[in-house]
């Protein structure tokens, strides 16, 4: 008998289906895609140098001869700033979150899985980073090294991983004593396999939510540093625009509102996506 070729399941496809069923999450994804597309390709469509003075300062949107979002205190195009400023914010957030995930998940997983002195050592180390005031710590790093985009990203990453480490550890502590972990061991799986293939996927849902929130927080963090003048002075960013215009924004609301909206939309899109992913990774919600 020619039986059909048996096929193993594809959990990815089911998760995607669940995700697409969550309207808010899809909205978040569309919003984020829009922002990313704007950042990558916006300058082709709106070819305007954000650093050039093009008109009178503080011209509001709609005023004669002003660009769509008005001009800032020097007479630079705000729309051009919004279109171009995203790349710094998103790059910094991506690199920072990558660091957070690599450091936080590794330390949390090892501490939670092995326990004992490994746990004690790694958690003391984590606490040292946790008690440091994050903003101050990042400022010191940026001040010590040159204030480049890379330094800012590393500073944010180093200041933000302890929460992820604690969350990962808590999930590993909860999961490692469950029967299916014992069963995996009884099948002959190695520690490495148990940590990354057996336990880690089960710890993913809360981690993903927390990581999307950290992504949002990193964007805010970068904006804060740039606002304080600790960003890369040569790289324009949304936070930097708000910081530079803070003296004059009472005379020109548009100078801070549009970059502010850009930050808000990006952070919001990450939270909505985070919610959607949480549902998508919960196998119990599937098939409903």
């Amino acid at each position: 008998m020619a039986a059909a070729q048996p096929e193993l399941g594809s959990p990815g496809r089911q998760a995607l289906r669940m995700f697409l069923r969550n309207r808010a999450a899809v909205f978040g994804l569309v919003l984020l895609s829009g922002i990313v597309l704007m950042t990558l390709f916006g300058s082709f469509f709106y070819d305007q140098d954000p650093t050039r003075i093009i008109a009178r300062p503080l011209q509001g949107p709609g005023e004669d001869g002003a660009p769509a979002f008005g001009t800032d205190y020097l007479g630079r195009d705000v729309l051009a700033g919004v279109v171009n400023g995203g790349s710094t914010s998103l790059t910094v957030a991506l690199v920072a979150v990558f660091l957070v995930v690599v450091i936080g998940v590794t330390i949390g997983a090892l501490a939670g899985y092995y326990g004992g002195w490994i746990d004690t050592l790694l958690m003391r180390f984590t606490e040292v980073f946790q008690v440091l005031p994050a903003l101050l710590f990042a400022m010191v790093i940026v001040a010590l090294f040159e204030p480049s985009t890379r330094t800012v990203a590393i500073a944010i990453g180093l200041a933000s991983w302890p929460g992820t480490a604690r969350l990962t550890r808590a999930e590993f502590l909860r999961l490692k004593n469950l029967e299916f972990v014992k069963a995996a061991r009884a099948v002959g799986a190695s520690d490495f396999r148990i940590i990354w293939r057996v336990i880690f996927p089960n710890a993913l849902p809360p981690l993903i939510v927390s990581i999307t929130l950290i992504m949002g927080a990193a964007i805010l963090f970068e904006s804060g540093l740039a606002f304080l003048g600790l960003g890369d002075p040569n790289a324009q960013s949304w936070g930097q625009m708000i910081g530079l215009n803070r003296q004059t924004f009472l005379n020109g609301w548009w100078t801070v509102t549009f970059p502010g909206l850009a930050i808000f939309s990006t952070v919001l899109s990450f939270s909505l996506i985070g919610d959607g992913l949480q549902d998508a990774f919960n196998p119990k919600l599937r098939g409903r």
Binding site: P6, L8, G9, P11, L178, E179, F180, K182, A183, A184, R185, A186, V187, G188, A189, V198, P201, N202, L204, F281, P283, K284
Partner: peptide, 23 residues
């Protein structure tokens, strides 16, 4: 383990990993 000597447990509900298909 799982090769020359293998084992089954009491709780079939919890001895399978919830995030992977059984196959």
């Amino acid at each position: 383990r799982g090769n020359a000597i293998s084992m089954i447990f009491q709780e079939p509900l919890t001895s399978l990993n919830p995030v992977y298909p059984v196959g």
